[in-house]
Nucleic acid binder design. Structure first.
Length: 86
DNA sequence: CGTATGACGTGCA
DNA sequence: GTGCACGCCATAC
């Protein structure tokens, strides 16, 4: 019985290249759309090289943040062809 | 077990 | 259109 945290990590891990999901979408896929708040906290505390957490952005279209450096996240997204607002 | 924290989201001024 | 404040859930201590 994977915890919500594990579920979120798994969902993010399954995000295809060049695709980005909002925290809300990830939370929904994890089983609780209202837990988008926890999703961010979890990803921030659990940094994993196997998890493309840089593909998770805010619903506003903003990148939000990145534990490895927001700059790197922007660069990675741009590299995959994903444009970010603001 | 209870408190504090956080990569968010939405609403209102 | 921008900025501020509140509410939300899960995790960590």
């Amino acid at each position: 019985m994977p915890s919500f945290k594990e579920k979120v990590l798994e969902v993010v891990k399954k995000i295809p290249k060049g695709k980005v999901l909002s925290y809300k979408e990830v939370a929904k896929k994890a089983g609780n759309e209202k837990a988008f708040r926890a999703v961010g906290s979890i990803l921030n505390k659990n940094l994993d090289p196997n998890i493309p957490c840089h593909r998770v952005i805010r619903s506003d279209g903003k990148v939000g943040g990145y534990n490895r450096g927001i700059k790197l996240k922007l660069q990675l997204l741009k590299q995959e062809g994903v444009k970010v607002k603001k």
